[in-house]
Design a protein around this nucleic acid. Structure first.
Lengths: 214, 214
DNA sequence: AATCGTTCACATACAACGTACCTAATCGAG
DNA sequence: CTCGATTAGGTACGTTGTATGTGAACGATT
């Protein structure tokens, strides 16, 4: 039985991700990927399970870039390392975020990250249901934070986009949305990595001082 | 200048959301919504700005259902109330989650929730950059937790879906993914609301005991 | 009351998408 | 060298979002 010949899955991954990065999600179609590879559209189906599979491919490609230092000292540092690693990978490909948020990924890279995270949390003394909750809190924070920068009302206006959700917020009735209007200013000039680390340390503080029952 | 006559935006919202709930996201198309309303496809364009606008409509409809009790006692309780309120609304419409996670919503309901959350956090003594980070942590948690149940490796297998990501995890090499395999069991029988509240309390603990600088 | 500009409802039409189906080329095994 | 299996990729179809055009319905103006 001859294996796939003209390409490898990894080539597809790389090209697909590059296309998403450069031209956006909508630019990734069966035909466009095929012609970027210099082949026919139907060939893609030999490497990938339909459109759904194509999108998982992109998710894989992003997660495969995640890197983190090993479980050095404190368990909280290990958790932070993995979380930051995942977040950096995601953040490097903002156009792919909608995919990452909505596909269930069971590829090796994601599973490895999950295992590393679980291990770090377990070293903090958790197991069973407690461990599961802690895991969900941290991964939820990572993806939630990505989403928060992408699509929350206070998301930084990303370059090409229609100008300025911030402006829209500024123009709201000041008596009904005082906090929102005030904070919209602070949101414009903030540094994402600083914010992420600050948020993460809140989470870690919570984890550190929450009683474990499992 | 005659205003829209045959329908209201709210009618569209309701019908669109009902379609997504009952038949899934893919079932919502311009034509399907139109014929559910007994009209032609192009009519939709008089109420909504293209496909993108149609999807925002669904997001609006979900967020419009969010309810929470008022800022009763402790500020942490107020934060929890809003968070739970948002989460319940989202959770009531699992099929719409991918939309909610990926559209930036500036509709009144979302903004009101944001304001309420900001207000509760501000009552905890935060402002400026600190307030912004706390806001992102909580909203990130809410959406991250929703996504975690939808698409994380440990997401509960939702009914209709292909059977059992759990099975896939169970079949991994036990020497490389011990934690993951162990926890996959715990993930099958867990109650979402309990998990959410437990996770939220970790977040709140973290917020409570993190020094504020702003 | 007659007119006019504006807005809505909706049919038609089209490009682009995912993909079912089919054919020819290409490989390993015997 | 032949045979079975597998890949490459062309063709074609149904479906999607939507640009465009045409009538009808309305409020305001004369």
């Amino acid at each position: 039985m001859p294996a796939p010949r003209k390409f490898t899955r990894e080539q597809l991954r790389t090209v697909a991700l590059a296309m998403v990065d450069e031209e956006g999600l909508a630019a990734l179609t069966m035909r466009s990927l095929a012609s970027a590879l210099g082949t026919g559209a139907m060939t893609i189906y030999n490497y990938v399970d339909g459109r759904e599979g194509l999108e998982q491919l992109v998710t894989e490609a992003v997660m495969a870039e995640a890197r983190w230092d090993d479980p050095a000292g404190d368990w909280t540092e290990a958790v932070a390392a993995v979380a930051v690693g995942m977040w950096r990978a995601v953040r490097a490909h903002p156009q792919a975020i909608p995919l990452i948020l909505t596909r269930r990924s069971l590829d090796p890279a994601t599973l490895l990250a999950a295992e590393a995270l679980l291990d770090a949390l377990a070293r903090g003394g958790r197991s069973g249901a407690d461990l599961l909750i802690a895991f969900r809190v941290v991964t939820g924070f990572v993806s939630g934070f990505s989403q928060s920068e992408l699509a929350s009302p206070l998301a930084p206006d990303h370059g090409d986009d229609s100008s300025t959700a911030t402006d829209h917020i500024r123009s709201l009735p000041a008596d009904r949305f005082p906090r929102l209007i005030a904070i919209a200013e602070a949101a414009t000039g903030s540094d994402p990595e600083t914010e992420f680390r600050a948020g993460l340390s809140i989470i870690l503080t919570g984890l550190h001082s929450t009683p474990k029952v499992g």
